[in-house]
Every structure is written in C-alpha cells, then in structure tokens.
C-alpha cells in the first residue's frame, strides 16, 4: 500500500527562539532549520512499515517556500521514494495545509497518511485531525504503536489517562507521538541517492486550494520572565524556605 508522509520545515528543536524587538514576528535570521521532530518520527514509521513489507511506496509532501526541498530531500534520504513540494510563500495555516494535503490525497489515494502530532513552531496540533475530517478518514492521533492488518490499522494512542487502543478502517490518518519510534540517521550513500529521487513541485493554485490565512498574528512578545531564584545550601535550608518564605508546604 501507498503511504503519504507530511514533513514540515521548522526551527531546529535546540534553538531558543526570540521575538523580534518590534514584535512583528520571530527572529529567524541565521537560525538552523530542520525537519519537525514529529515529522521525522512519521517518516521513520513509514520506512519501518515498508521494511516489513506492509508499505510499497512512501510519498513525502511538504508545503512552503522553495527551501522546503531540503526537508523533502532529507525524507528521501531516510527512505521515502518520491517527494512533492507544494510551493507557496504565503504563511499557510493548519486548515489550509489540511486542504492542500487533501488535494494530494485525492490524487495519490494513499491508504494511510502519517503526520507529526504537532509542529514545534506553531504548537497547533490540528493538521492531521483536519485532514482526516476533510477526507472523511478515520484518525489515530498521538500514536505510540501502529499495526496494520488487512484493511484496518490498530493504533495505540497516548492519552492523558494512560493509553487507548483504537481500530481504524483504512484509509486512515495517523499522527505520531514521541514514543512511536526512534528515527534513524540518514547514511551518506542514502543522502547521495536521495538527490536522484523524483521531486515534483506544484502550487496551491494548481490544486485549486484557497490558502488565505484566517487568523492574523497581531504581535509576538516574550513570555513573562521568572525572577532569578536563590541557591540553598542544604535540605534544611530548603525546607525552611518552603515553609517560612514561600509558605507552600
């Protein structure tokens, strides 16, 4: 079966971003960019399913400016077979992303779409659910285990109370949580091979999708800073401070 994997270009997870001083956005000058970690887990899961013989083809899709090709090439180096870039310079929000992915789903007709549960820049946690809604597909969000059997997939989900197992009819959308797998690193030969894999480019206009943002960011600012604390010498002083200064125990 064919699997579609969505990959997003985001600021590397080790970077502590800061708002620009005029509050108009986040300072992304000379900041290291990477694949969203949850998307990496999504690629890894697709590759593992292919290695098991469950999946026959993996298509990696990214949406954004031309540079997003870098993240698609990384996905190809990790084991995806071909890539699709939906090129746009507009700030594409989750609903529009879901509509674009639906257009790709309509063309490609994958049995499963695997996405990260959230991107670490916008922290929205919406796209997979929205794509499932628009495509009429079932959804297994926050997945920690994915088992495909015939026409269905059994997904173990990380939920607030522990874990929940659901059985979904295919085609289905799966969004990845942290414990689903540990992504591999791309090997040099695979990075070289990835350069020769096919990568198609299309535009939202070609897909007939309206991507105008519905939500406007008026300003961004740093969060309230915590006051610097004190170091205590020992446990006795800590207990004293908690009892008599902070009065929390």
């Amino acid at each position: 079966m064919k699997v579609l994997v969505a990959v997003k270009r985001v600021v590397d997870y080790n970077v502590k971003v800061r708002p620009k001083s005029d509050g108009t956005g986040v300072d992304l000058n000379n900041v290291k960019m990477a694949i969203n970690p949850f998307c990496e887990i999504a690629i890894e899961e697709a590759v593992r399913l292919k290695e098991k013989g469950v999946v026959t083809e993996i298509v990696a899709v990214s949406i954004g400016p031309k540079v997003c090709q870098e993240q698609i090439r990384t996905a190809l180096a990790l084991g995806a077979d071909r890539g699709i870039l939906i090129e746009t310079d507009v700030e594409v929000q989750p609903l529009a992303i879901a509509k674009l992915l639906k257009a790709v789903v309509d063309k490609e007709e994958p049995k499963m779409v695997i996405l990260g549960k959230q991107a670490i820049d916008g922290d929205n946690n919406q796209t997979g659910q929205m794509l499932a809604a628009l495509s009429g597909m079932s959804q297994g969000t926050f997945a920690s285990e994915v088992v495909v059997e015939g026409d269905s997939v059994t997904v173990t989900r990380e939920v607030d109370s522990g874990s929940q197992v659901v059985k979904l009819a295919l085609p289905a959308v799966v969004t990845t949580d942290l414990r689903l797998n540990e992504p591999r690193y791309a090997s040099l030969p695979n990075i070289m091979k990835a350069k020769k894999k096919p990568l198609d480019t299309m535009t939202p206009e070609e897909l007939g999708v309206e991507v105008t943002p519905r939500v406007t960011t008026l300003k961004v600012e740093p969060p309230a800073e915590r006051q610097a604390g004190v170091k205590v010498a020992d446990v006795a002083e800590l207990v004293d401070k908690l009892k008599n200064e902070a009065k929390v125990i």
């Binding site: 971003v17 820049d121 929205n124 961004v220 600012e221």
Partner: peptide, 28 residues
C-alpha cells in the same frame, strides 16, 4: 480555523497563545 491553547482572552476575536514551546507569546 482553530485557535489552540489560548492563555488569555483579549477581546471577542483576539486571544493570546504560546508558540515555540512557550518561548514566544502570540496575540492572534
């Protein structure tokens, strides 16, 4: 659209929400 994880209501259509792991607060 959905507006995720608001932390304050600024007006009928404007809200604050954390992005980038809470390192930035956006007014949307």
């Amino acid at each position: 659209a959905q507006i995720s994880e608001i932390i304050s209501v600024e007006s009928a259509d404007t809200f604050k929400r954390p992005i980038y792991a809470g390192n930035v607060i956006a007014t949307v």
